[in-house]
Design a protein around this nucleic acid. Structure first.
Lengths: 225, 225
DNA sequence: CTGAGTCTCAAACGTATGTTTCAAACAGAC
DNA sequence: GTCTGTTTGAAACATACGTTTGAGACTCAG
């Protein structure tokens, strides 16, 4: 039982290539040649390409999941019965993501990009896998959000949560490209941590927007009911 | 010159399948069998699969582009020199999208989903095509946003625009699924127009969030500089 | 009617994919 | 050293893909 590093090399290569190119656009041959392992090793160790995708997600999602649980535990303990505020809840999530032990310097970007892909490129099997394995911290986050925004109706809260998810998944999944564009345009360099620090207040403000703004301006042809 | 409907049947089928499954996951054989045309017709009429993708986008993006130009013209005329407000600008965009003449009842969802895919699944050729063909209304929208938020630094505005794009593209591209989930959860039915009416105030509030909120709460390990 | 141009069709081509096979190499236990 | 179970290697397999081909049907001007 040599406990070879073949499995890890495959996971490393797959993680990076999936994040760069997506799932369908990444072939097993790209992965094995980048990892310098034999093609058959993937099916030997993982069984199938889909199972490899699941393994890539499990490797970073399982520790993230427990980090998040701990962060929520601490937060609720610190609040001693009172529900945490929206800002505190969002920051707990953000810091758990940012503080995750990373294998490489690009770890956070890859992490975020994979999460974004999981939502946008979900081929059924992935969505099901994620729901089955990691629904608990997700539900808990939802409960915290609900307690932090008691003024919102259930419908309003539902849609605004989707807006938050979208802003986050979309921005973070393209963070590398967006950072490059900003660099070329204004000459400012940015880190993923900085993006997160700018994102949280945007989300919090949107989440707490006045309902009165729901009314379109005069002359508009769009109505909401 | 029978002016056959083969071209339109291919475009209709391709549009729907692309929106459902993405580009790489949709084969020409799926398209031609759904459209009930011969496989070779695609390459005969369009030249390649990539050119077909471009044609699908051009068919709805070209009229949308001119609708948007008109809406911006009207808006700037109505404001008579003064820069339009953020709310007005966002509503002009929203109404242009919602009021587009649709081929089917699902037209708006497909429209939005394709736009989302263009951003997230962009395989280079698509991004380049869109930039080459439709950069003008995009630039104009950006200029209006800049004039409507003079209090923001260029960097802040850049990131907040990305957040807006993300919330919009993500939510609208999955609007069908999200509407179904809400129906099953709370028993409330929703239209795409309603989502848009809820989205605009969220975006406006986020866009105008206080910079002070950039500071993480006490005890946080995340800094922005 | 004829013939050039436009379009459709079934079939095949070349390539790339995920997966399987099976022999060889390797490890540690006895 | 030998044996047993585990891991690797090169090759092949079956399938699906985008694209091309060439023959046949159609339209319509001359």
């Amino acid at each position: 039982m040599a406990q070879s590093d073949t499995v890890d090399r495959i996971l490393d290569a797959a993680e990076e290539l999936f994040a760069e190119r997506g799932f369908s656009e990444t072939s097993l041959r790209m992965i094995t040649s980048k990892a310098k392992v034999n093609l058959a090793a993937v099916n030997y160790h993982f069984g199938s390409k889909n199972a490899l995708i699941h393994a890539v997600f499990a490797r970073f999602l399982t520790p993230f999941s427990s980090t998040l649980e701990t962060a929520f535990d601490e937060l609720e303990e610190r609040c001693a019965g009172k529900p945490p505020t929206l800002n505190q809840t969002l920051w707990a999530l953000t810091e758990s993501a940012v503080r995750m032990p990373q294998r490489t310097e690009k770890g956070i970007s890859i992490f975020m990009r994979l999460l974004g892909l999981a939502y946008t490129q979900s081929q059924g099997h992935l969505r099901k896998f994620l729901e089955d394995e990691y629904s608990e911290p997700f539900s808990r986050f939802m409960r915290l959000l609900k307690e932090a925004t008691p003024q919102l109706s259930a419908v309003d809260r539902y849609w605004r949560i989707q807006f938050m998810l979208g802003a986050t998944a979309f921005t973070m999944s393209s963070s590398d490209a967006l950072i490059d564009i900003l660099q070329n345009k204004i000459g400012v360099d940015t880190t993923v941590q900085e993006i997160a620090a700018r994102l949280v207040p945007f989300l919090a403000a949107g989440m707490q927007a006045e309902d009165a703004m729901l009314v379109p301006p005069a002359g508009s042809k769009v109505s909401i009911a």
